[in-house]
Amino acid sequence: MSFVVGLIAIGALALIFGLILGFAAIKFKVESDPIVDQIDEILPQTQCGQCGYPGCRPYAEAIANGDEINKCPPGGETTIKKLADLMGVEAKPLDAAHGEESVKKVAIIREDECIGCTKCIQACPVDAILGAAKQMHTVIEHECTGCDLCVEPCPVDCIDMVEVEAKPETWQWNLDSVKQNIHKADTIPVKLVE
């Protein structure tokens, strides 16, 4: 008899706690971004494809499905660190097979050499190149992510990737760079003191 009472009591308890848990799961549900969105948020959105996927979102989906987090050269170390935090895995060095982290660059078209073939326009993942067939093209610098994808298709090789110039307001207080900075303006009558 006592065995049956015990059984019923435990069963009832299980039922009650189950209900409470179930209720809590609905009532206190934490709305969070799906993991892919969170990863996508971290990626630099250059859409450069150096990771081997056609754009940042596909790579985000791949990471969510278990791909490595160190395939993004434009994001570099900071991105890997953030991804590691999010995914709860160990941060590792950038996979050199996908390229190296380098200074920020922007594409510039040497406009007098452009033949107006529109191939770069088709290649640009963020529509940052302006132009039409047989018209000279130009890059909207502000929108360019420096992904490099327009350089290859150009038949006359008139696109250069140039480093983004440091400006006083984006300068990172690297005092060692000062000595080089002062030589950046070409026509300065610099009065030097021995």
């Binding site: 005092l175 000062v178 000595k179 002062i182 610099v190 030097l192 003191v193 021995e194």
Partner: peptide, 8 residues
């Protein structure tokens, strides 16, 4: 040579 650079 130019002047010494130092942090405030």
């Amino acid at each position: 040579m130019s002047f010494k650079v130092a942090a405030a």
